[in-house]
């Protein structure tokens, strides 16, 4: 089982009927030359990379830009088109007065499997008191949160909100809540590592390719910035495969990971088993 934990479906043709909305997505994500693709192509790309399931992430910026960049209902629509291949997450702008109501609707009515939050583009500090009702709902419904962490290439998304240390209060205050700090919190890798080894409920993903080729960048990350056996020895069960598609091509990141030299069991965990645990797909 291979699971891509980090896919932005803004250019899936089935939710790109409105040209202005598609252009708005290009601007919000900073993906200026990305064009819509049909479902057949998306599934072929997943097959080519050997990916069984992709986690689709919406984005609600209601109070920031007045836009829901990708809506929860659009994600639900896409999951319905290929329910064996897609896992849908929710997004709520935490500053919305009805954020909790919308999140309950996502879990109860839309059947979404987790929550994506982006402190940088949604402009909140993860430890802020306004977040408590949202975290409590995720605990109540046993849904994980995928947080953007570290550098964001979205144009209006300061990294200061998403520094890994910002998430320590969440990890500490909600030990039953599974949280994934995406992108390894790059460039603050040491902070991410500290949280991974200390808090059982903290995970990270591999959706980063900010310099060099995937092979070179992952070698730098996993073998030079970190000790060469840190992942194998210490948190082989806490790193999830994620591509950040369409920003980075899933097959390239998978090939890069396979060249790092992880132990076979570690690689198997990263590519899918850890996500099965994080998403509680065992049942």
């Amino acid at each position: 089982m291979v699971i891509d934990m980090h896919v932005h479906p803004g250019f899936f043709q089935d939710i790109c009927g409105d040209r202005e909305r598609t252009e708005m997505r290009r601007q919000r994500y900073g993906l200026y030359k990305t064009s819509p693709s049909p479902l057949e192509h998306t599934l072929e790309v997943m097959d080519h990379a050997g990916i069984d399931k992709s986690v689709l992430l919406p984005l609600d910026l209601t109070t920031i830009t007045g836009e829901v960049v990708i809506s929860n209902d659009e994600v639900r629509t896409l999951v319905s088109l290929a329910p064996d291949r897609f896992v849908g997450f929710a997004s709520v702008d935490p500053h919305r007065k009805d954020a909790a109501v919308e999140l309950v609707r996502c879990f109860e009515d839309l059947g979404l499997s987790g929550l994506k939050l982006n402190p940088s583009s949604q402009r909140f500090h993860p430890g802020d008191a306004i977040m408590a009702p949202i975290y409590e709902l995720c605990v109540k419904y046993d849904k994980p949160i995928l947080f953007h962490s570290g550098l964001s290439w979205e144009p209006n998304a300061p990294a200061k909100y998403a520094r890994p240390l910002e998430f320590e209060d969440v990890a500490l205050g909600y030990p039953e809540l599974r949280i994934c700090l995406a992108h390894f919190g790059w460039p603050w890798i040491d902070e991410t590592v500290m949280l991974l080894i200390k808090y059982p409920n903290v995970f990270t993903d591999t959706s980063l390719l900010y310099l060099d080729s995937p092979k070179d960048f992952y070698e730098q990350l996993f073998k030079k910035n970190m000790g060469p056996l840190w992942v194998d020895r210490n948190f082989a069960d806490k790193v999830l495969f994620g591509s950040n598609a369409p920003r980075f091509r899933p097959v390239r990141l998978r090939e890069g990971l396979e060249k790092v030299g992880f132990k076979p069991r570690t690689l198997e965990n990263i590519l899918g088993l850890n996500a099965v645990h994080f998403l509680k797909l065992e049942a």
Partner: peptide
């Protein structure tokens, strides 16, 4: 496929890494 290509860097005009 793997070599020291100069194109393998982040391209702001695309929002992606040249791979």
């Amino acid at each position: 496929k793997d070599s020291s290509y100069m194109h393998a860097h982040f391209l702001p005009s695309y929002g992606t890494t040249g791979g």
